[in-house]
Design a protein around this nucleic acid. Structure first.
Lengths: 198, 198
DNA sequence: TGAAAGATACCGTTGGGTAGGTATCTTTGA
DNA sequence: TCAAAGATACCTACCCAACGGTATCTTTCA
């Protein structure tokens, strides 16, 4: 039985593998499937190893969420860097990333994971904090009510696609919707935004 | 110790109480807090009684969700009945109900419960089916892409308010947002809807 | 050689669920 | 009319698997 006992010790790698496996489990079978034994088994180590790297299960799953947020954060930064127009830059990046095709299409898994996170109060707080920080950082260029409206619609979009019946069909309207939302962010900023449209 | 043992038998009432307690627990402490012992204890009966009324925990929680959907369904019907205008009638009702103040404001609990439901695959399916049926029923008056857009934004709205930091503050923009969405449903139907706005 | 990495074996609790009892209600037949 | 008989409602006591977590031992590596 050549377990991870004999092979070369690679603590960093094992730690990463544990996080990845936890994320994968949550992605494919829901947060309830993320048990310490399942994660450690999937990572090819034992519970003892897991508890060596993470003081508790909570710490593990928070690590997963932190990773996810960091990834999203980096993606948004990358998208913003390519955008020359200041007004609505953050909102465009947000829409572009969250409505990116693989993000939604892959069996709705990303959305399912996101939902699972929001369902857990402590994890929701992490997302909430990140969200607030990001919004506050871009309040000058993206504080407009019109832009908030666009972000709201984007959020509604991925949740709507999660609630579709067959999560594997191609989502043809997604591109059109994204284009429409992006277009709305390109409008000139209004002096005062109210409910006077229509 | 006069439990519900000697007391007059009230099966319907006990069944209802079990459902209500389960809903309340989920509302206040999340779906994870909905255990058979917690629910039965809250209802003032024992596990045995619960399993007499429901063949499994799954059946219980599905009953809760079915109740919730029925309630939502009825609310939407009531709102639609007061609306003389055919075009966008369902969408207006949907926006009106889902963005109704107590629905969102009460500690974000309703939203939290909804999220918990969506996080569970089987429960999500129930919502999904209801959603699809309702949408198909109103496809003539509410099949427009503009109206779908409005409903998307409404979904995004309640999820956004869930992700706020302090879930108890008054949500002042809610009324304005709802008014704006309603206004969008009053626009004349376009011959062809694309991404040509802005 | 000693600290870090990992394995093994165990613990207490709690989860959903079952078995079989007792109490109350409803039906029925003389 | 009313009591036996059967059905329904509800409880007590248990099962057992899985959970998160700990203590301790072995292996590897610097």
């Amino acid at each position: 039985m050549a377990t991870a006992y004999n092979r070369k010790k690679q603590p960093e790698l094992v730690r990463r593998t544990l996080l990845d496996c936890a994320a994968k489990l949550a992605l494919e079978q829901g947060l309830a499937a993320v048990t310490v034994q399942a994660v450690s088994h999937a990572a090819g180590v034992t519970k003892g190893a897991l508890f060596h790297h993470f003081p508790s299960k909570q710490a593990l799953v928070e690590g997963v969420v932190a990773d996810l947020i960091a990834q999203l954060d980096a993606d948004i930064d990358a998208a913003m860097a390519k955008d020359p127009r200041p007004y609505g830059r953050y909102t465009r990046a947000y829409v572009d990333i969250t409505l990116h095709d693989p993000m939604i299409t892959e069996g709705g898994q990303w959305a399912a994971l996101h939902i699972s996170i929001l369902a857990e109060p402590t994890l929701r707080r992490m997302v909430s904090d990140w969200f607030a920080e990001r919004l506050h950082r871009h309040r000058d260029t993206d504080g407009d009510a019109d832009l908030e409206f666009v972000r709201l619609a984007a959020d509604g979009a991925w949740i709507a696609y999660l609630v579709r019946e067959k999560p594997t069909d191609p989502v043809p309207e997604l591109g059109a919707l994204r284009a429409r939302l992006i277009a709305m962010t390109l409008a000139e900023p209004k002096p005062a935004s109210g409910g006077d449209r229509g």
